[in-house]
Design a binder for these strands. Sequence first.
DNA 1: ATTTTTATACCAACTAGTCTGTTTAATTTT
DNA 2: AAAATTAAACAGACTAGTTGGTATAAAAAT
Lengths: 203, 203
Amino acid sequence: MARDGKPTRDKILAESKALVLENGFAGTSVDQILERSQITKGAFFYHFKSKADLARTLMDVFSAEDLADLDNALKETAPLIGDPRQRLLKFVQRYVDMMATLEAPYPGCLYGSYSYEPSQFSDEIKQKISDAILTWRSALEEMLDETIKVHGMKIPVDKKSLSDQFVVILEGAFIISKALNEPKLTAEQLKHFKNYLELLFES
Amino acid sequence: MARDGKPTRDKILAESKALVLENGFAGTSVDQILERSQITKGAFFYHFKSKADLARTLMDVFSAEDLADLDNALKETAPLIGDPRQRLLKFVQRYVDMMATLEAPYPGCLYGSYSYEPSQFSDEIKQKISDAILTWRSALEEMLDETIKVHGMKIPVDKKSLSDQFVVILEGAFIISKALNEPKLTAEQLKHFKNYLELLFES
DNA sequence: ATTTTTATACCAACTAGTCTGTTTAATTTT
DNA sequence: AAAATTAAACAGACTAGTTGGTATAAAAAT
């Protein structure tokens, strides 16, 4: 048999992700990755056939984790499925709580990072980002549908764009939280989204 | 005296900004800027003493334009100062209308771009970004204060973070709009912020 | 009014160093 | 033995920045 390459590969992925969020992808050199990961060039190119291959893998891993977390949030709130309004609010609250624990601004989202240097990435990668965002849209739209069925809406608003607002606020809050160095800002912003939903679906 | 260098300088700034939003700052080479601007290296380094100098100038120009536009929006809505709720809503609607005219996703905001490769920029530049965002916060907070004095709030919410939400939604919407290639998304997202304010300050 | 000067604006070629990626041979771990 | 990794040299393209010189146009001097 042979030795296990997974720890090395995981270390490369973790350090690369952090570096990309600090420097941008184009601004991160392979040599920087080697230094942070404490590995050699041979090891890097053993695991990734190119820097572009790393970019793709980073996004694959990130989006898989992101969507797995969405899935968890849906499952955790599934018991409230009989009260869709409560379920929706609980879902949002889960992310409020998550962001409220941060002691430093969230280091950033690869969707946002990649979107600000789009020419560096292939269409395949951009498609993956788009797919992930649309998965969030669908998940929230379904919860909204159920809620509207039961409660109606205080004022008529566009359902699709309301679904998008969750991700929009997250992405925006990550940027502003970093720019102002205010770790709690993201949780506060999500709380406003929850407020908005509460006002829209008053009981 | 001598010939006028302003057109050249302006061309460099315009093309650089576009390139930075496409490739990121680190991902944009001076040679690329030369090619797009149809100038030579000598001309570039005549106008900017380094690439870092360009980064600083780009942000100076961008934030100045951004804050000038904020100032315009405040002045345009100043006649409604006697009805602070209407003024606030009109202020937001102005940006809804502006974003609704876009036929392609907004190319991006330099605050967001710079925030996703923070190591590339000096503290001075980051301070400029922070100052600009805080200026937005103050402007909205003042309008909110006046509105609350007259109308109160339907539910108690944090005023400072509510002020921030305008910029948060803009930044987030720029990213998601680009990622999904949906030009109208930004206007729709701002509309939700307006809805939220209307629900908070029902008459 | 014509020539000369001057500061600015700009160009083309060059330099020193960095970038990603390759190669090779030896070594370690299971 | 097979897989994972080190170490180091190397190539070719690209990087930011420099240099020495030239073009332009207005002002100054004649």
